[in-house]
Design a protein around this nucleic acid. Structure first.
Length: 375
RNA sequence: GCGGGCAUCGCCAAGCGGUUAAGGCCUCGGAUUGUGGUUCCGAUACGCGUGGGUUCGAAUCCCACUGCCCGCC
């Protein structure tokens, strides 16, 4: 995977006062302007959004899941259709998660050994097995631009011994992932683990940095820990990863998380929150997260956020969307999903502009307090 | 006019003499971070149609009244 000619990362600007950066990641399916937010499309669909909606949010890359696609409809079927891009008719970049996280967070009765993980399919109870080689085979069948290493995510809280074991196993699995990964038109990102111990995180960052990868990820966060702890850990870890490569903070996050992450040198984020929150009736605004069912919006003729350019905000009032939500209309979830997804993408793109124009700190300060106050 | 039945939170409704009157819907709040696709959690009756009575104790038993429902004339 050395000097992969299908990928390159251009670091356009590094903020002078913080660790924020702006860049472009070139991939086989197009460029990604970083920092970037990636909507999550677990089952090869971003929930509630059609391709048309997704394009309107100006998503440049989306994430999908090996774990779920392996179970249904099976990576071999998607391979027969020419890979994920053709399968879902999405010609921009795609990143797939390895299945590591899902095996630990979703599958009940999982049984982990040095070789891999045996687990039961949540709904049917059927038994399956994934290890580093199988994860690589799945992801190479699916054919996303970026594949992720098969790692072991430690829970929070986690004692030191178990954190060490999970981290060391992740490193051994990483070696196997790189050996099994042969597709040159696909990048493989290694992942930092080490739970919430500074020395382990530092060690892990050092170990994965020895691999010549297109980009590097920080995993094992947003598993229930306090925000300050997550920020501390990112602040500690990000600078230890190669400066000339994109850094991906997995599973994050909220508007505040994006702001804090970018400030500490993170370039890529993904999170289920915009679409899950939408289905559960809440929406992002520059004044914090709000809940559409609240009575205060009963007669509110204004859009979800006055500064948003999304389809929902350009066409509908809070009162209307609240009514749809209360009636159980799927359109409410669709409109809120469009808004939340566009909100994060626009928010981080505005952040990028501020970095390019040397005013990131100003941007940070002008948003962080009001977001914190309202959230 | 006579006989019978019912009256418990905005709605439906359990309770049939004994601690703080179930539950559901609605309402109001809150959760959610590499997604188990309308989810999960919490709050809300100082009172059981009204007035008396029996009892140590009554939404629960008795009487009257009021309202609604069903028969009969």
């Amino acid at each position: 995977m050395k000097n992969n000619k299908h990928f390159s990362f251009e670091l356009l600007k590094e903020d002078k006062k913080t660790h924020a950066r702006a860049g472009i990641l070139h991939t086989p399916h197009g460029d990604i302007e970083t920092p970037i937010f990636m909507p999550v499309g677990t089952h090869s669909a971003v929930k509630m959004l059609t391709k048309h909606h997704l394009e309107e949010t100006k998503a440049q890359i989306i994430l999908s899941n090996s774990f779920h696609l392996f179970l249904h409809p099976g990576n071999k079927l998607i391979k027969e259709f020419g890979g994920l891009h053709k399968w879902m008719n999405w010609d921009k970049p795609i990143l797939t998660d390895s299945g590591g996280f899902q095996v630990f967070s979703l599958a009940h009765l999982n049984n982990i050994t040095e070789d891999g993980v045996k687990f039961k399919e949540p709904k049917t109870g059927d038994e399956y097995y994934i290890n580093p080689e199988i994860s690589m085979e799945i992801q190479q069948d699916l054919g996303p631009d970026i594949a992720m290493a098969f790692d072991q995510c430690a829970p929070y809280p986690c004692d030191y011994d178990n954190a060490v074991k999970a981290m060391e196993r992740t490193h051994r699995w990483l070696e196997r992932c790189f050996k099994a990964h042969t597709r040159e038109d696909q990048a493989l990102f290694p992942i930092v683990q080490g739970a919430f111990f500074d020395d382990l995180r530092q060690e892990s960052a050092k170990v994965i940095s020895t691999y010549d990868a297109v980009g590097y990820a920080i995993g094992g966060v947003s598993v229930g820990e306090p925000t300050e702890l997550k920020n501390h850990l990112v602040e500690l870890t990000a600078p230890l990863l190669p400066n000339d490569k994109p850094r991906y903070l997995m599973g994050v996050g909220t508007p505040i998380d994006l702001l804090e992450g970018v400030k500490r040198g993170v370039d890529m984020f993904d999170c289920v929150l915009p679409t899950r929150n939408a289905r559960h009736g809440s929406f992002f605004t520059y004044e914090g997260r709000k809940i559409i069912k609240n009575k205060q919006f009963e007669k509110d003729p204004s859009p979800l956020d006055p500064n948003c350019d999304c389809y929902a905000c350009q066409n509908h009032s809070k009162a209307y969307i609240r009514h749809l939500y209360r009636m159980g209309e799927a359109t409410a979830a669709i409109l809120l999903s469009i808004h939340n997804t566009r909100f994060l993408i626009k928010f981080i793109h505005d952040m990028r502009d501020s970095i390019l124009e040397d005013r990131f700190e100003e941007f940070y300060n002008s948003h962080i307090n009001i977001l914190k106050k309202e959230s």
